[in-house]
């Protein structure tokens, strides 16, 4: 037996009902919007992360080179070209190619006289430049006594300056790259001898920067295996080169990971 119905039949078009339904639809829209905002936030985090690393790292794939006239002076190298091949390579290991570079630079910049200035001039070139000179003469011993133009690697600081990552308007005392070095660099740039090249050695060989970073870290009495956490108020701290190279390395790693991810997704869809 049904109970007595004391409830009125529902008026689906009363003003209260209409207002209520309107509110519910509005809540629906808001809920929908929150969802869109959420995935937008998540995806933009990803974009910012990848974007910032790519932005910092892209220039790391390029290395500044300076075309320099190198004289393979017999007296400095001190090894006759007539020697037997293995003995020649052996002897070559004991040659100090920094002196070769220094002598060649003396010819280029004759008015650089003081000891400290000449050291500064040398510092425009990377450690790798010595290796390049050694490799050139090792591949072709007949170069002894001759003068050749080699595309030598620029030092990290110079590399960063040329890429425009360092603020040169900061007073000299707060910079690592001093005015003198900048003027020499400018001379070389005006001569058209400074340019950027794709750094294939980044992929094939270890980078000099690991050693550079370690060296500068030891200078600051920090451990080599911890990344820099000090402030970046110095416009051109050595960390700038580290930042660029590390970002480039991370880019390579991430490209590999994304490729693997993509492969996994494709495989999963193929076998579904």
């Amino acid at each position: 037996m049904t109970k007595k119905n004391s409830i009125k039949p529902t008026d689906w078009h009363s003003p209260e009902m209409t207002a209520r339904i309107k509110t519910r639809y509005r809540k629906e829209k808001n809920f929908h919007r929150i969802g869109v905002i959420a995935i937008t936030i998540a995806v933009s985090f990803l974009i910012i992360l990848l974007g910032k690393i790519s932005y910092d790292g892209v220039s790391g794939f390029f290395q500044t080179r300076i075309d320099t006239k190198i004289t393979f002076s017999q007296s400095i190298i001190g090894v006759p070209s007539t020697m037997d091949k293995t003995a020649f390579q052996d002897q070559l290991k004991r040659v100090n190619f920094t002196r070769v570079l220094a002598a060649s630079l003396q010819n280029e910049f004759p008015d650089v006289n003081s000891r400290s200035d000449r050291r500064r001039l040398l510092r425009i070139y990377s450690i790798g430049a010595r290796e390049q000179i050694r490799l050139a003469i090792s591949a072709d011993p007949s170069l002894i006594g001759q003068t050749v133009i080699l595309p030598l690697y620029a030092a990290d600081d110079i590399d960063q300056v040329f890429k425009g990552n360092i603020d040169t308007s900061v007073p000299e005392a707060n910079r690592r790259v001093k005015d003198k070095e900048l003027s020499w660099l400018q001379t070389l740039i005006d001569d058209g001898r400074v340019y950027q090249k794709f750094h294939t050695r980044f992929f094939t060989a270890g980078d000099w920067n690991g050693r550079v970073y370690c060296r500068c870290a030891k200078q600051h009495n920090r451990s080599c295996d911890r990344p820099p956490r000090t402030n970046f108020l110095m416009a051109d701290s050595p960390e700038r080169a580290f930042l660029e190279k590390t970002s480039a390395a991370i880019m390579v790693l991430l490209m590999f990971l994304v490729a693997m991810n993509g492969l996994a997704i494709w495989l999963r869809q193929k076998f579904e």
């Binding site: 995806v43 990803l46 690393i53 990344p227 991370i250 790693l253 991810n261 993509g262």
Partner: peptide
Amino acid sequence: VKPLLEILAGVPTIVYGFFAAITVAP
């Protein structure tokens, strides 16, 4: 979107640490 979120999960934590120290902190 789902694969994009999975990429977030696949990024090595040291990259996040690097990002935190070098971009987010300053």
